[in-house]
Amino acid sequence: MSRSDPRLYVPASETAFVEGQTVPLLPGQAHYLGNVMRQGVGSPVHVFNERDGEWSAEIAALKKDRGSILLQHREREPMPTQGVELLFAPLKRDATELVIRMGTELGVTRFRPVVTERTNTHRLNLERLGVIATEAAEQCERLDVPEILQPETLRVVLAEWPEDRPLFAALERRPGEEAGLRAAALLIGPEGGFSDAEVEMLRRHSAVHALSLGPLVLRAETAVCAGLARLAAGAEGDA
């Protein structure tokens, strides 16, 4: 695979990918290939999804917002991303989009927005965020696109959270549990942090473990990167 070849996520359909199959492009993908990347019929392209893996292909037809590709052979077998679910309090638009992009690149398997007492926005454009996650997956060469769930309140999420599914929460100025970092999920709070009542609610939940991100107070989007990197390093150290 050449790093210069366009790479597109093509959702799995009822028919599995096979050599010689012609696959239609979405309108946005056809526009991207023809007008942004300046590609034409016969140009190489790579396509992928979580079920079929990654395939080399070439553009079979391309005209304005329509097109198709011809599958050649599979380059990579399907392989689910090994990461954690990210629970985060929605931020302002640009910051939320940055969380989705960086989280996808760092292996987040699912994004779960949680509304806390200090959450400063309750409106999310999930369609737009899905596009950002897809673009990030295409860029970072993972084979799947993380799911983005509808927002729920922190209280509801914790009430339904299984006791045997470790959830690490980034809590400022509190010691972290440094041993056995086999987290299933990471929780990052809003700007201004969790309220005292929320901290107590987290502390009482048997699945929740405190995660230290160092002595400095981080912006929420920075805390996402630091937390994901911390859990990844801990998992590698325990392997």
Rank of each mutant, 00 (worst) to 15 (best):
G34L: 00
L124G: 03
L71H: 08
E200R: 04
A60K: 11
D196K: 12
V208Q: 08
C225I: 15
V224Y: 06
L187T: 15
K63N: 08
E221M: 01
P113M: 03
E50P: 02
A223V: 10
A226E: 09
V47G: 05
A235D: 00
E191N: 03
E50Q: 13
P44V: 05
A136W: 05
T222M: 02
V23R: 03
P24E: 08
E54P: 00
E178W: 03
R112M: 09
E138D: 13
R112P: 01
V108R: 14
V224W: 02
S4H: 10
C140Q: 13
S212I: 00
V217K: 15
P78E: 12
A197T: 11
D144G: 15
E97A: 10
D52C: 01
L186E: 01
R3A: 15
G83L: 02
E14K: 09
L62Q: 11
A229M: 11
K64F: 06
L171H: 06
L231H: 07
A229D: 06
I132F: 06
H209D: 01
I188M: 00
E117L: 10
S56K: 12
P215V: 07
R123P: 01
E236W: 01
E191T: 09
P146H: 04
T22M: 08
L186T: 00
P44I: 13
V41P: 05
V45W: 07
S2I: 14
A170K: 03
A12K: 09
R38M: 01
L158Y: 06
G227I: 07
L167G: 06
A197P: 03
V41W: 05
R51K: 08
R204T: 12
L171W: 11
T134H: 00
L202S: 05
I100G: 05
W161E: 13
